[in-house]
């Protein structure tokens, strides 16, 4: 009898955890990168970034499809995918991390997100200062980071090196909703 009662309570507790630990997701996050040089400014946007957060743990995961970046000029798009990122070989960039001291009840909070950003099979640790806002049942996270292209073994031909910044500014904005399952 005691065993049955114990099993019942464990089942109820697990059920609560599953409901509370529901993930929030954004299938259409915005990621923009900027390369500023005296010769040329290059900007590209990806509006189909995938990200999820766990309200319980503050864990955050991001996946970005490199071919979904949109450029103003098709030649830039071609160079980016074929020469710099080699997106046939490395189709995705990912970020896995944790929001430090995340409080799911705060309407607005500035937090550090610690994690690893992986691009072209190279993973580097990052600490990103981010603004997190809560409105109704949605959460927004926005911030920016600077990526050193040498760290990710991105080779730029000498002829084009004045056109490409050595440090690329990447900004992101995700709007999370409960994941419908």
């Amino acid at each position: 009898m005691l065993k049955t009662l114990l099993s019942f309570f464990i089942f109820i507790s697990l059920g609560c955890v599953v409901i509370e630990a529901q993930d929030y997701i954004d299938r259409q996050g915005e990621i923009t990168f900027f390369s500023y040089t005296s010769v040329e400014d290059i900007q590209a946007k990806n509006n189909q970034g995938l990200s999820s957060i766990s309200l319980e743990t503050g864990d955050i995961a991001v996946r970005i499809l490199m071919k979904a970046f949109v450029f103003k000029k098709s030649l830039m798009h071609e160079h980016f995918n074929e020469s710099y990122i080699e997106s046939d070989l490395y189709p995705e960039a990912t970020f896995l991390g944790k929001i430090i001291d995340f409080n799911q009840d705060d309407d607005e909070q500035i937090r550090i997100i610690k994690g690893d950003f992986q691009l072209r099979d190279v993973s580097k640790p990052f600490e990103i200062k981010s603004k997190i806002t809560k409105e109704n049942n949605t959460y927004s996270i926005e911030g920016e980071l600077e990526v050193n292209i040498e760290d990710y073994k991105i080779k730029v031909p000498k002829l084009l090196s004045p056109n490409i910044a050595k440090t690329i500014k990447v900004s992101f904005k995700f709007q999370y909703r409960p994941n419908e399952k």
Binding site: R27, L50, L65, A68
Partner: peptide, 9 residues
């Protein structure tokens, strides 16, 4: 068609 993550894009 650009590929897929969780969804096709």
């Amino acid at each position: 068609y650009k590929g897929s993550l969780l969804d096709a894009i």
